[in-house]
């Protein structure tokens, strides 16, 4: 039964938008934490650790997110037959795997952007590796990482629309349901787009505010906020 687009549809889309946010906040936090760990590995003196980080980053960044989503969706039940994961958990896993790669690159770049003189000064003071990172390198790297991190968060919000393919009812999937019920795709998807726009635009304003306040600027970015200079450099 078709019906016209009404308040209940707007409410459904709003609920979808909240799920999109929940999805992105969860996988964004997980991606940041794990990305920091892998970022430290990528800049560590250990050749093996660096190699592991590079391989992970280049593999994940060289394949489409859809492949990762389908891997999580079809693969996890195959590998762990007893485990019944919710669609949300599956989506979080896929988006986290994706986020870790980008956050690793961001942290690697930020750590490398801390001037060499800072490291030398810390070493000259006799700080151990851990102390040097804890008190000198990371506090500065974190500030540098914020603008590209926010850029990636925007990309993540948009890319999270792809988990619609596994049936998780986030904003885009809610749009598809409403569009089918109302047979009004232009209006429905325009509202969906407006929701995404408001969220992303607000986040990007936040980023610009941070840049103004701290003077930390990000590099010019390509599609989906991936630092252009970081793509697929020699492993």
């Amino acid at each position: 039964m078709l019906r016209s687009f009404g308040w209940q549809d707007l409410e459904a889309l709003l609920r979808g938008a909240l799920w999109t946010l929940a999805l992105c906040v969860t996988s964004g936090i997980l991606g940041t934490v794990l990305g920091l760990a892998l970022g430290l590995a990528a800049t560590s003196p250990s050749r093996v650790a660096r190699w592991v980080a590079y391989v992970y980053v280049y593999v994940v960044r060289g394949i489409p997110l859809l492949i990762i989503v389908f891997f999580a969706y079809f693969g996890i039940p195959l590998v762990f037959p007893g485990v019944a994961l919710s669609a949300f958990a599956t989506a979080v896993i896929a988006l986290t795997v994706f986020s870790v790669a980008y956050m690793t690159e961001i942290f690697r770049g930020s750590i490398n952007a801390v001037p060499q003189g800072q490291l030398e000064a810390a070493e000259a003071l006799g700080l151990s590796y851990a102390l040097k990172y804890r008190y000198v390198v990371l506090p500065q790297a974190m500030r540098i990482a914020v603008p590209p991190g926010i850029g990636f968060l925007i990309a993540l919000i948009k890319d999270s629309s792809l988990v619609t393919v596994i049936g998780f009812v986030e904003l885009t999937h809610a749009g598809t349901i409403v569009s089918n019920l109302t047979a009004n795709p232009i209006l429905t998807y325009s509202v969906v787009a407006a929701f995404y726009f408001v969220i992303c635009y607000a986040v990007s304003r936040l980023g610009r505010w941070y840049e103004r306040r701290t003077g930390v600027r990000s590099e010019p970015l390509g599609t989906d906020a991936q630092p252009a200079t970081l793509q697929l450099e020699g492993v």
Partner: peptide, 18 residues
Amino acid sequence: EVFRNTPLLVQLYLIYFG
């Protein structure tokens, strides 16, 4: 701004279904 702040998938839906 509009194209950079909305998902490609939604743009695709608008063109294909809209």
